[in-house]
């Protein structure tokens, strides 16, 4: 069954809310596992979001313009001896979606500027 155009699924809203929370704490960008961990902590869930659910949602949110992503510089990842991360950030459209569908949020701009 296809979802309605423009509809935001619960997992997508959870990602957006967790990402907004990270922004508020001065973390402008996040990677896959980091957001899974953040969602688990926020929802006090017993388990982390599965790979399939998480990356499918991130991919769809990026297609919908709610998130933007960039791949990390491979040199940096190599220096730290780990695989390259994909860094995601919430777009203005994503922020608007959070504001629209949840309780009023304080503005996110100052935190993002502080992070950058």
């Amino acid at each position: 069954m296809r979802r309605k155009e423009g509809a935001i699924l619960p997992i997508e809203m959870a990602i957006l809310e967790a990402a907004v929370e990270l922004v508020r704490r001065g973390v402008a960008e996040f990677y896959g596992f980091q957001i899974a961990k953040e969602i688990k902590e926020r929802q006090e869930a017993s388990r982390l979001t599965s790979h399939g659910t998480l990356y499918k949602a991130l991919s769809r949110m990026e297609d919908a313009g709610l998130l933007a992503s960039r791949w990390e510089d491979p040199m940096r990842a190599a220096e730290e001896g780990r695989p390259r991360r994909r860094w995601y950030r919430v777009t203005a459209e994503g922020e608007a979606a959070v504001v629209k569908t949840s309780v009023p949020q304080p503005t996110l701009r100052p935190a993002r500027q502080a992070a950058s």
Partner: peptide, 17 residues
């Protein structure tokens, strides 16, 4: 390649964390 890299990175971060 993007999906394989996403999961590879996730597995590493999960173990490391």
């Amino acid at each position: 390649d993007a999906r394989r890299a996403d999961v590879e990175s996730d597995l590493w971060d999960h173990q490391a964390t």
